[in-house]
């Protein structure tokens, strides 16, 4: 249901190259690895100052009302973050007293189905992809989060060559089947 999420893709799509596909996929994999390696400072440095990091809740609805499957922007969301609030979440993890992540979870972020769309802004691309985040913690707690994402990547002169300017996510669960949501996507 990613199509219900606002898109910035240009109406007239410019052609993209295998080289760009390769470059963007490699960036997404490195970014995912930073989260799994708990290199949160490095990950935070990739976030643009104007980032919107958003995951709506989902409703189970009948087929005739599939256009109302996601919570609206003024309704309950699982994440609705800006750079400062993500920073607070990350600083919390450094205290050693964020019990939901102390001891830290083992996570693995898998990214696939990467599609690139051009936008009307130079150097900005809209990326659609699927994710699977596996979390295992303590003795045997295991959670699997699967969904889709629509990111805006912005060209940058940082070491990775890209900044993350927007991340809109759809999780394929309506009732969240975990005792909390203490990992990043």
């Amino acid at each position: 249901m990613l199509k219900l999420i606002p898109s910035r893709a240009a109406s007239a799509q410019e052609p993209t190259s295998p080289e760009l596909q390769q470059e963007i996929e490699q960036f997404l994999y490195r970014e995912a690895m930073m989260l799994d390696n708990r290199e949160f400072d490095d990950w935070y440095a990739l976030l643009a100052d104007d980032i919107h990091y958003y995951m709506p809740t989902r409703y189970t609805r009948g087929k005739r009302e599939m256009d109302k499957e996601l919570s609206l922007l003024d309704e309950a969301a699982l994440f609705d973050e800006d750079k400062a609030s993500i920073g607070l979440r990350l600083r919390r993890l450094t205290t050693g007293m964020a019990w939901a992540e102390e001891p830290p979870s083992r996570t693995r972020h898998m990214i696939s189905n990467v599609q690139i769309h051009t936008t009307d802004v130079d150097g900005e691309y809209e990326i659609e992809c699927c994710f699977m985040v596996y979390r295992n913690r303590l003795e045997r707690q295991t959670d699997i989060f699967v969904g889709a994402r629509r990111d805006i990547l912005r060209r940058s002169d940082n070491a990775e060559g890209w900044m993350l300017a927007r991340r809109l996510m759809v999780l394929d669960q309506s009732t969240l089947l975990s005792n909390n949501l203490s990992v990043f996507f």
């Binding site: 609206l72 309704e75 309950a76 969301a77 009732t175 089947l177 975990s178």
Partner: peptide, 12 residues
Amino acid sequence: AVGGVHKWVIDC
């Protein structure tokens, strides 16, 4: 109430 409900499961 604000629209939407946070629903989640805790094993307790």
